[in-house]
Design a protein around this nucleic acid. Structure first.
Lengths: 219, 219
DNA sequence: AGCGTAATCAAGTATTCACTTGACTAGTTG
DNA sequence: CAACTAGTCAAGTGAATACTTGATTACGCT
């Protein structure tokens, strides 16, 4: 009996692991770490069908990692709490020490050697000192919460908005997290026009989790 | 192209999740968190066949969570590093906030309401003040590392050794971690004989990870 | 060399998983 | 009420998983 109960306990732990055992579900968690989203928005972000996305979300819900609520016509999903955010952060951290992640990250992100980083603390100190902060995430994520004073520059609009940056102002770009390309692309594009641009270490969820100030602009 | 590379990156993260997606592998990680072990020892601990255990270990190795080395005739496995220990700890923590774990834990561990805990700090302070520390794990795990001054009382021997405890000495028991039954059983058995017994919060890996002193006695 | 032990490999099977397609349900709007 | 939108459910298919059994390999001992 005891040995069965022991196995059952570890099976419960494994249920949490299972939730992260699929790449699409990992993507979902990463997007949900930015804030609450509808099924439709999530499906688009992870380039999957509606039905498939819904099913993945239900797997996550069954394992207790996400919760959902109805808002009129749509169903909004969100991460279940702080421990889940912490787990996702730790998991990515552990994955970094694994060979395959380095290769996959390099293929996706390119060489980041020349990208300069700004620490959260430095950015927090300089927020009201005329630094220009670009939030390079989809609008929905910006609206769910962002660094105070940041302007929303969705990934597709970076090129179009390079010229609106006044001379002599430093730009700090951020997006979803350490493995998010959008901020890299923005910094490279700005650097190509000789703008002093750096990238925030990690991304918005880490900023929020660090207890730093957050602004919201949803409707 | 980029979208494929993105999927590939998240697939790499999922590979780490996949390693934890099976109850037997979770058990293996939990045992390995105590220290290096042979395949044989691990197979026995998780009550699985030799071949199956070996295969699970190779899954863990492929995902980078464990490494192995040959020692003469046997192959010894160990966790790949600090980030992996941190991940396992965080995963269990997150799992605690999930409904199923509570039920499974209760079925396995019973009602822990009356079990008193000792914090790591308190035990560390009192180590040389005549407190008796019982390490209630299999001998192999004790030998791989234990709290200084602790005596090894393997799970099966608890009953036999209840009487060797001198009167008026407080006993602190510990085993693998928060979800390990052995220490609970020892404390209950000691309490049944009116010995002042408490349980260390969590277990040995958490003690080691907290940077507290560790003794080893292997040969 | 020959034997024993520790571990891995290979092949087979029942189960689970990821994704698709098409039907269905819950709310909202005209 | 019908028409529409957002989401879920159900069934099916090919691929991956977990475990078994029976070789096969690697090392140590005599």
């Amino acid at each position: 009996m005891t040995s069965k109960a022991k196995a059952a306990l570890y099976d419960q732990f494994a249920l949490v692991g299972k939730a992260f055992s699929n790449g699409r579900r990992a993507e979902l968690v990463d997007v949900l770490a930015q804030g609450e989203r509808s099924v439709e928005g999530l499906a688009e972000q992870i380039s999957q069908s509606f039905a498939n996305t819904s099913q993945h979300l239900q797997v996550l819900a069954r394992s207790g990692l996400v919760t959902s609520r109805r808002d009129g016509n749509r169903v909004l999903y969100r991460l279940a709490g702080e421990p889940v955010e912490a787990l996702w952060e730790t998991l990515r951290g552990a994955a970094e020490s694994v060979a395959g992640v380095h290769r996959a990250a390099e293929d996706y992100l390119g060489n980041r050697g020349e990208l300069e980083l700004v620490s959260r603390d430095e950015l927090a100190r300089r927020l009201d000192e005329g630094v220009l902060v670009w939030d390079v995430r989809p609008v929905a994520e910006f609206e769910a919460g962002h660094v105070p004073g940041a302007v929303s520059v969705p990934p597709g609009e970076v090129q179009r908005r390079l010229d609106e940056v006044p001379d002599g102002v430093e730009i700090v770009a951020y997006c979803r997290g350490r493995f998010c390309v959008f901020a890299d692309e923005a910094v490279r594009a700005l650097a190509g026009r000789n703008r002093p641009a750096r990238r925030l270490e990690d991304g918005f969820p880490e900023w929020r989790r660090a207890g730093l100030p957050v602004a919201a602009s949803s409707g």
